[in-house]
C-alpha cells in the first residue's frame, strides 16, 4: 500500500515538474515526426497509429487510452478521419487536458486550407464522405510547414518558458524545408499535367501541389467497394484519356486496381501516405521524397 502511494505521489509530482518533457500524442506518424522536429528535447512523442495502417480503421485498443491518459497534447487530423476510433479513446482516457476544445487538443485541420468541403448536403448515399472536407492533407510542404508552425504555437502556449526554443526549432525545420524545396520543385516540374487515377480520393492535396490531373477514382464512392459497371467505365475513360498510372495507398488491397490497370494498359503505383508506411520512411522528408520517386516511376 505504501509503495502504491509512493508511486502515485511520484506520478503526480512528475506531471508538475516543468523541465519534464511534454507528453505529445499524435494520431498519425507524420504528425509525430513534425512534433519531434518542433519540440526537440522538450517533448516526448508517441503516435497512436502506424504509418502502414489505414488511419480510418485503427483498433481502439485499450492501451491507447493509457497513452492518452498521460498526454499533455493530442495532435489529430480532424475532419472525422479518426471518428471510428478516437472518440472512445479520448473518453476512456479520463484526461481533461486533451478533451475537444481544451488547449491540449490540436485539430491540425484548423491549420491548413481544407479542400473538398461539400457544397451540398452530404448523404451516406454518396459513400463515406467527410462532411468537413478531405482529411488527407499532411503531405505537401506548404501544409507541413503550416502544421509545424501550429504545433510550435501550441507548444509555446503550453510551455511559455520554452517559447524561444520552440521558435528556433521551427525555424530550423523551415530552413531545412526551404533548402530542399528547389530540388523538389525541379522533380515536380515533369509531373505537371500528368493524368492519373487514384484508388481513394486521398491524393488531391498532393496532385494540386504537383499540378497532376486526377481523371477518376477506382472507388466511385469513398469507402464503398466499386461496382463492376463503374470499373468498366473507368477503364474506358482511362483508355480514352491515355491514363497510365493508378495511385493506391500501400495499405489498400491492390487486386481491384491491378485488374483495372491491366485492362487499361496502365500500372499501379503503390503509394506511401504516412511516415512509417515503409521501414525506410522515417520522417516527413523521407515521405515527400518517396512519393516524388514513386510518381516518377
Amino acid at each position: 500500500m505504501n509503495r502504491l502511494l509512493c508511486l502515485l505521489t511520484m506520478l503526480g509530482a512528475a506531471g508538475a515538474l516543468a523541465d519534464e518533457p511534454l507528453a505529445v500524442v499524435t494520431t498519425i506518424e507524420t504528425f509525430a515526426d513534425l512534433a519531434r522536429r518542433v519540440g526537440g528535447e522538450k517533448v516526448r512523442v508517441e503516435s497512436l497509429s502506424r504509418g502502414y495502417q489505414d488511419p480510418h480503421f485503427v483498433d481502439a485498443r485499450p492501451n491507447l487510452m493509457v497513452t492518452l491518459n498521460r498526454a499533455d497534447l493530442l495532435i489529430r487530423v480532424g475532419l472525422d478521419l479518426e471518428i471510428g476510433w478516437l472518440p472512445l479513446l479520448t473518453q476512456g482516457a479520463r484526461n481533461e487536458k486533451i478533451q475537444p476544445g481544451q488547449s491540449g487538443d490540436l485539430d491540425a485541420s484548423t491549420l491548413v486550407e481544407v479542400l473538398d468541403v461539400p457544397q451540398v448536403k452530404v448523404s451516406r448515399a454518396m459513400g463515406d464522405v467527410h462532411p468537413g472536407g478531405n482529411p488527407h492533407y499532411w503531405l505537401p510542404p506548404v501544409n507541413a510547414v503550416r502544421i509545424a508552425r501550429g504545433i510550435a504555437e501550441r507548444l509555446k502556449q503550453l510551455r511559455p518558458g520554452d517559447a524561444a526554443y520552440f521558435d528556433a526549432q521551427f525555424q530550423k525545420f523551415l530552413a531545412e524545408v526551404k533548402q530542399r524545396a528547389p530540388a523538389w520543385e525541379a522533380r515536380a516540374k515533369p509531373l505537371a499535367g500528368l493524368k492519373v487515377v487514384t484508388y481513394h480520393r486521398s491524393w488531391i492535396y498532393v496532385t494540386r501541389w504537383l499540378k497532376i490531373e486526377e481523371v477518376g477514382y477506382v472507388e466511385n464512392k469513398p469507402g464503398v467497394a466499386p461496382s463492376p459497371v463503374h470499373l468498366a467505365e473507368l477503364i474506358t475513360l482511362m483508355q480514352g484519356q491515355g491514363v497510365k498510372k493508378i495511385l493506391v495507398e500501400e495499405f489498400f488491397n491492390h487486386s481491384i486496381a491491378e485488374t483495372v490497370a491491366n485492362k487499361a494498359g496502365a500500372k499501379v503505383l503503390s503509394m506511401p501516405s504516412d511516415v512509417g508506411a515503409r521501414p525506410e520512411i522515417k520522417s516527413w522528408f523521407d515521405l515527400v521524397e518517396a512519393v516524388l520517386t514513386q510518381l516518377a516511376r
Binding site: D105, D107, P141, V142, V145, R146, R149, L174, V177, K178
Partner: peptide, 15 residues
Amino acid sequence: QLDLAAGAPVTKAAP
C-alpha cells in the same frame, strides 16, 4: 509559398 505558410497566423484555440 513556404514563407507565407510560415508567417500565416495560427489560431490559439481549437476548434
